[in-house]
Design a protein around this nucleic acid. Structure first.
Lengths: 138, 138
DNA sequence: TGAACGTATCCCTATACGAGTATATAGATC
DNA sequence: GATCTATATACTCGTATAGGGATACGTTCA
């Protein structure tokens, strides 16, 4: 990660713990398509890795690594249920994250890919109820 | 830039021209502190490179390169006035950019660094009116 | 206990990025 | 045309990142 230090005296090191730095991390998480789709889905429902694999049609490694990236930056939380790892948005998301997730919803509501993802999510809900506890709608 | 190709069939290549891709580019621009501060300032005023140097207290190369980065992704526009290059937000910003800039304003309004930047901008306005045409408030 | 399953991690490669130094460019002024 | 000023670009280095293949891990179930 690039939690920038202040070697060059860029006047921004101070910002490590401020809203500004929170923001940088949020934008870093948002700037990859896979992660953006993951977060978008998570604002509708808790999901486990295999759900993401299914909906996004991406290999497990890729999903898993992006989820790790998000976890490291506290954008998502995990809970194990048997073999499944259930990912959710934080119980109490920071204000900046909430604001930006709303902004995201707003921006992608007519985008074909994101719409397709939501449709795939809905489909998944009808045909699959494993593991219980995931796929809980918001 | 990482205008991702679709080699791996990630189902996202399609998105190159959609709102989603616009978004990715926006977030890529937003995920560096210097660029974030630049954009934040630009939503108040058109500015030239030396203004940024002054306000952000960063070396010219750094500023210039981040502005080039933003320019390449059409987040800012430039106009030459004599020796000065005056940077502004796009005349007609895309909806996603506008939305996210508003979101940014909202998120940083109480952040010390961004507040300091605005104070520095105000100060600049009182003491300096070169080049004319820059420092025009919004 | 061992196999199956869902998931995470390791290793490797290619590319992007941020920052700095030095240099180039373009317009203004003399 | 020489020079000054404001800005941009080239080059280089170190690091972050995305992706894939192979494998390790933890849980469940036979």
């Amino acid at each position: 990660m690039r939690l920038r230090d202040n070697r060059a005296g860029d006047g921004f090191g101070v910002l490590l713990k401020t809203a500004g730095m929170q923001l940088i991390q949020i934008y870093q998480c948002f700037c990859d398509p896979t992660r953006l789709r993951i977060l978008h889905l998570l604002s509708r429902s808790s999901l486990c890795v295999c759900h993401f694999q299914d909906i996004l049609a991406e290999p497990q490694v890729k999903i898993s690594k992006h989820l790790a990236y998000l976890r490291a930056r506290e954008m998502v939380e995990v809970e194990r249920r048997g073999n499944w790892m259930i990912y959710s948005l934080p119980e109490k998301p920071k204000r900046e994250l909430e604001t930006n997730l709303k902004c995201l919803q707003d921006c992608v509501q007519s985008d074909p890919i994101f719409k397709r993802d939501l449709r795939a999510l809905a489909k998944l809900r009808t045909k699959c109820n494993e593991p219980s506890g995931a796929l809980v709608g918001r």
